[in-house]
Design a protein around this nucleic acid. Sequence first.
DNA 1: AAAAGTATCCGTATTTATACGGATGTTTTT
DNA 2: AAAAACATCCGTATAAATACGGATACTTTT
Lengths: 210, 210
Amino acid sequence: MDKFKIAIVDDHQLFRDGIHSLLSKQDNFEVVISSENGKDFFKKLKKGILPELLLLDLTMPEMNGFEVLLKLKKKYPRIKAIAISMHDDGNYIMQSIRGGAYGYLLKNADEEELLLAIDTVLKGNKYFNQEISQRMINIMSLEGVSPKKLSPKEMEILKLIADGQTTKEIAQKLFISTRTVETHRNNMMKKLEVKNTPELINKAAQLSLL
Amino acid sequence: MDKFKIAIVDDHQLFRDGIHSLLSKQDNFEVVISSENGKDFFKKLKKGILPELLLLDLTMPEMNGFEVLLKLKKKYPRIKAIAISMHDDGNYIMQSIRGGAYGYLLKNADEEELLLAIDTVLKGNKYFNQEISQRMINIMSLEGVSPKKLSPKEMEILKLIADGQTTKEIAQKLFISTRTVETHRNNMMKKLEVKNTPELINKAAQLSLL
DNA sequence: AAAAGTATCCGTATTTATACGGATGTTTTT
DNA sequence: AAAAACATCCGTATAAATACGGATACTTTT
């Protein structure tokens, strides 16, 4: 009976080797690609080596995991990716899911959980443990009913506010009217559903906008 | 020639085994303790098994790495600890150092760096790589010249401010005068060296006070 | 092409924060 | 025991944010 083909993309060889070693002990898995970066991975895909599942580190130099996810979704939509990250930050998790990840694991997951995640995703399901799910819920509730992005100008003004600048100081710095600054501030408050500026800064920090 | 005695404390067996395996390949190291928690570790120390160096996970259930550090410093000051963590947050790093850690590694460090850290610390030096050092510097500059802790009342008020409450609302909620709230806010701003409330919230978020 | 978003700016008014200064009494630290 | 920190509260004044409302023109999205 054929084994499931697995790919690993991670810039740390120690980690890749550890996973490779673990999966080699299983009867039903075979590591067919072990790449240290996304470019190498796609190069191997192009050669016709197609895994069913990818274990993907998010934090890599040059081409990060999110970029790999997006490209994978476009070019090889049948390959299912499980994101693996050091970061338990809800924003990372949400970005992975929006990028098409089928699962999310922290790098300190034990081998039992790793194998369970692989099994779950190979069956076509998504894998997020209790803690990860909780963080997703937290971020979703933080983002509000209809999450909205801040415009470039809003981001610029947000940072200046967070740095302690007053509306007058920001207006002078950006060569715009104080009323313009007020309008942007008000629009941000509406977008993030907060009632005043301290809460805006707090929420922006929680959403990793700062 | 005698080997250096190393202890490992981490709740993930996969990680402990990986480190154990790696160190076993080295001629000059010997893993004498491999514990899944601090309690087991101290129990083994009590039996007279004394390593020169400890590789210590910070995030563990029940007795976390910081508690282990503090107890180690008191009871076995000759044992040098290297903190190992998923978190690259400067606050974790600073807390480790203040707790007596001789080094700090991220869990995704490669084997070369791990061995270098161990060597460095066994020689009596401290090991912090460039990135970790940078984060320390960032936090130190955030904390200002003379870092001050916020009092319990200040913390309470800080959270309410971050939640979008006005001075009047906080006063009503805590059954104190608005002037009292104003004084606390002003004192916090002085302690954290900021110029207004948005900057206070931003800095508090950066210092993980929220 | 139409709608929505972005970036700009305004009048008027009220609320809130900040800035000076001050104070007392209790608790904790030195 | 003395000093410092904490928690409480005040008068007066100014600055800043917020709250209502409104607007134009350009760019992007639908």
